[in-house]
Structures are given as C-alpha cells and as structure tokens.
C-alpha cells in the first residue's frame, strides 16, 4: 500500500473540515516519512481503522491550539485541556476528519470497506507515540489557531 498516494485525501479532509466546521484556513506543508513514532505537541487525537486497512490517524496539536479550537467550535472558553468539552471537541474534530478521509478512500477503492474505531484523546507534556513495526507519514499544517500535525500509519488489513 502506498500511503503517499493516500495522504492527499487526509490533507484535503483536514483542510475542508477546518474550513467547514471551524471557519479556519489551513496551509499544508510537505508529506514526510516519520518512521515509527513522534513526540506529541501536547494534545493528540487518535482514530483507528479496521477492515481493508489497519492503522491509525493522529491529529496532533499544542494544548493552546486545542483550547482555541474548542472555543471556536462550541463558543465557550476553557482553562485546561482536562475539561471534558475540550477532550470531546478534539475527539469530534479528529473523528470527522478521519471519517471524511476514509469515505474518500472507500469510494476510490470499492471493496476496502474500511471502518473507524471510536476516537481516543491523549493530553500531556512530552508524550512519545510509537507504532511498533508500522511506518508513519505526516504533514505539518499551519492554521490561524496554531500548528497542527496529521499523522497516518496504516497497512493492508485482513478484512
């Protein structure tokens, strides 16, 4: 499977969701091979895939960016990412981006039937995220709410 071929679908989904859901423009950098792991900026949403692909989509950002996105999304300010609404807002943004992207992948390759797992959110300083034996591709993106990174790690699944 050539993830390089599919990364533009995830980039396009991220740009569209930030525009439609948050009214934020996003400028994208280049796709990079990130190896097996990365250091979180402080707030990471993870959504798993199963079916024709197995793997994960990560949406990573600073805690300040997560707070800003929550404020834009639900119109309320929060002081800390430990607030449930901040965690849930991040989860929903990650869920919708990955859902939009996987819809594109499924429609471009009928029969894959990839489905998503519920999102998980991790918040903390100096977190290392590591994918054993799987290679990740990532893109740094600049938004008006701060820098975000999307990271996709996937391999062909067994259905």
């Amino acid at each position: 499977m050539d993830l390089n071929r599919h990364m533009p679908i995830f980039i396009k989904a991220t740009v569209n969701v930030f525009k439609e859901m948050l009214d934020l423009s996003v400028s994208s950098g280049q796709v990079e091979n990130e190896g097996e792991g990365f250091i979180s900026q402080g707030f990471t949403v993870m959504v798993g895939f199963c079916g024709g692909w197995r793997g994960w989509f990560f949406l990573d950002m600073s805690q300040a960016t997560a707070l800003k996105l929550t404020e834009i999304l639900i119109g309320e300010q929060y002081a800390t990412v430990a607030e449930e609404e901040v965690l849930l807002s991040g989860a929903e943004i990650g869920n919708i981006i990955s859902g939009n992207a996987i819809t594109g992948v499924n429609n471009s390759q009928p029969g894959l039937n990839i489905r998503l797992t519920p999102p998980s959110v991790f918040a903390g300083e100096e977190m290392s995220l590591y994918n054993v034996r799987l290679n990740a591709h990532s893109v740094i993106m600049q938004t008006e709410a701060g820098v975000i990174k999307i990271n996709v790690v996937a391999e062909e699944g067994k259905g």
């Binding site: 990955s98 939009n100 996987i102 819809t103 499924n106 429609n107 009928p110 998503l116």
Partner: peptide, 8 residues
C-alpha cells in the same frame, strides 16, 4: 448524520 458517508 455521519462523518462516514461512503457509497456502501
């Protein structure tokens, strides 16, 4: 209402 809306 869904984030997933593929043809299937």
């Amino acid at each position: 209402l869904s984030a997933m809306s593929d043809n299937d």
